[in-house]
Every structure is written in C-alpha cells, then in structure tokens.
C-alpha cells in the first residue's frame, strides 16, 4: 500500500459563504478501503464529488493517481466510479436499460455489456426488477442499482457514498462483501458513511470529518488510541481487591475497585494487560478473568469531534 491513489491537498470548497470543506489534506493509498466518517453535512459528499470531478475546488487540489481534478478531469473520470448517496435516475428509467447504457459507456461491447449487467443484477437480486420503472422500486433496491453501476464499472477508484443507507441487514452484509471483492480485484475503495459499525467493519483507515475539517486519520486501532484512557481492562480476582492491589494497578492507569472486580482505564489496553498480569502474578494475586474493552468508534468520534449529542441532533 505505498502507491498514492488519491492525494487531497489543502482542499477548500465553498458554496457562496458556506465553507463545505475547510482545508482538507489527506492521502489514500492504492488498494485500501478508506472511510470518510462524519455526520450529515460534515463535508464527506462534497469531498467525494470533488474527487469525482463534479465540483471544482475553490482552492487546493485533488490528485487521482497523479492526475489533477482541476486540469486533468477527463483522465480522472476514466479511473473513478461513484455510487451516489441518492440514486441518480429519473422515475421513468428502468434498471436494466440504465445499467446496460452505463456498461456500454464505461467500455463494454454490446454482448459483454449484456452479460456483465445480467451477472451483476442477478448477483444483487435485481434481475426480477430489471424492467420495472425506477419509481416502482423500494429505496433499498434503488440503492442496489446505484451500487451495481460501480460493480459493473470496476473502476480503479471506487467511491461509495453511504452505500448501505436504506438497505436491509442481509443485503447490507452482502453489499459489504461485494465491495470487499472489488478491492480484491484491485480497486481502491472510498466509503463515506455516518454508520460507525459500517466504518469499523469495512475500512482499513478512516478520516473523521467534522464541519468540513479532518479531525483525525488513522486505522481503527490508531483512532481508538486517540481517546486518553479509552481502553478499559476489567479484572476479576480470586479475592477482594484490597488497597495493596489497587496501588499496584494504579501504576497503569485510573483504577476503580468493585469488590473482587477492578476496572482500569488505560491506553493501549492489550499491551498494558500483559504488564498487569505480570505485576499481579509477582505479587501473588490470582486472576480469575481479564477482559480488555476498546472504546467504540462512537466514543472515538465524540471524543475527537468534541461534539455533543444534543448539538448533533439540533
């Protein structure tokens, strides 16, 4: 993962006086699944649409495999495919016609196009809906049609904007597998989502975007380590945790004794746990059970953005 697939360099995008993206810089490497995580209106879609050459940067640039979205848009578009947040079709469009046309435009010959469209539609359970009008389809089915475009295209950079919003649980897992297959076939994947579970399950690295700014970038583990004393080590001892035991444990982090149970709030819990086991063994304290609990991505998000739930809702 050393080749740079996408370089976002000091990207600013304004709509009038509103700053949608505020000086974002980040790099996405070839072959990775990268997540843009943030609440609605945080600037995820604007960033994606700038990568896909729909929007022009107000300042800064985005480079896709070295090509600038500002000066080499045609070349960028040959490498990028996007599944939009809102499926893009008129009510009178039919999924099969839409996908067949898409397949031809992205480079399949007539026969190949018919085959790949049938295969992908069958794979996503869309075949039975092929001749329905778009307005007759459910939200989830529309979303699958949108994702089918990218699966047909197999672009070098595949962008998914909220790929599983409105999709049922079973289909959601299936779509995730399909996106992972696309990565296996060589695509670099970018997923914008506000679903922490999706981000955690799918993405190798994540950028947390909030109010147009990147607040943190890293692997899930790195982001979790951002939260000071975010890991919780839960110890169950064979006997009551007296002051002596608590004193030993307080060397590692903040300690809370609950009878024969102790909660220790630490950083890098899985590493500290080994040291704790050693220290207690040396002191002759018998451990019945030890469990390391990481902070959830929600905890990370709230810690990093400093956002209050109330603020988010309002």
């Amino acid at each position: 993962m050393t080749e740079k697939a996408i370089e976002i360099i000091n990207l600013v995008k304004k709509f009038g006086n509103f700053v949608a993206v505020d000086n974002i810089s980040l790099t996405i490497y070839s072959g990775e699944i990268f997540g843009l995580l943030g609440p609605n209106g945080s600037g995820k879609t604007t960033t994606l649409l700038t990568i896909a050459t729909v929007y022009k940067p107000t300042s800064g640039d985005v480079r896709v495999y070295g090509y600038s979205v500002v000066s080499d848009g045609d070349k960028v578009r040959k490498m990028v495919g996007i599944a939009f947040q809102e499926p893009k079709a008129l009510g009178i469009d039919k999924p099969y016609d839409l996908l067949l046309w898409h397949a031809k435009v992205v480079g399949y010959s007539g026969e190949e196009a018919r085959k790949v469209v049938k295969d992908v539609m069958e794979d996503l359970g869309l075949w039975e809906h092929r001749n329905k009008y778009f307005y007759q389809l459910s939200g989830g089915t529309r979303k699958k049609v949108e994702i089918a475009k990218v699966l047909i295209q197999k672009p070098k950079v595949a962008i998914f904007d909220e790929p599983t919003a409105q999709v049922d649980v079973v289909s959601k897992h299936y779509l995730w597998d399909k996106i992972k297959e696309l990565k296996e076939e060589g695509s670099t994947i970018i997923i914008a989502t506000n679903d922490m579970f999706e981000a955690e399950r799918m993405c190798e690295r994540i950028a947390i975007i909030y109010k147009g700014k990147v607040k943190a970038i890293g692997t899930i583990k790195e982001l979790k380590d951002f939260v000071p004393l975010g890991d919780t080590i839960e110890l169950e001892l064979a006997s009551y945790a007296d002051q002596h035991v608590l004193d030993i444990l307080s060397r590692f982090g903040k300690v809370r004794g609950l009878g024969n149970k102790v909660l220790i709030y630490v950083n890098r819990g899985e590493e500290v746990a080994i040291d704790i086991i050693d220290a207690l063994r040396r002191s002759g304290v018998k451990i019945v059970r030890i469990m390391v609990k990481e902070p959830s991505l929600d905890d990370v998000f709230f810690y990093i953005t400093g956002a209050k739930l109330k603020e988010e809702i309002s």
Binding site: A52, T53, K78, F84, E86, K88
Partner: peptide, 18 residues
C-alpha cells in the same frame, strides 16, 4: 429536470469528455 434533481452529477462523473 436533471439539473434540478442533481441527476446531472451522474453524467458528469462518467468517463467521457464534457
């Protein structure tokens, strides 16, 4: 209608010259 409903975005990301 495509401009109003932002459907034009789809056409703009296709691998073709404007």
């Amino acid at each position: 209608m495509e401009v109003r409903r932002e459907l034009v975005d789809y056409l703009l990301v296709l691998p073709m010259k404007r």
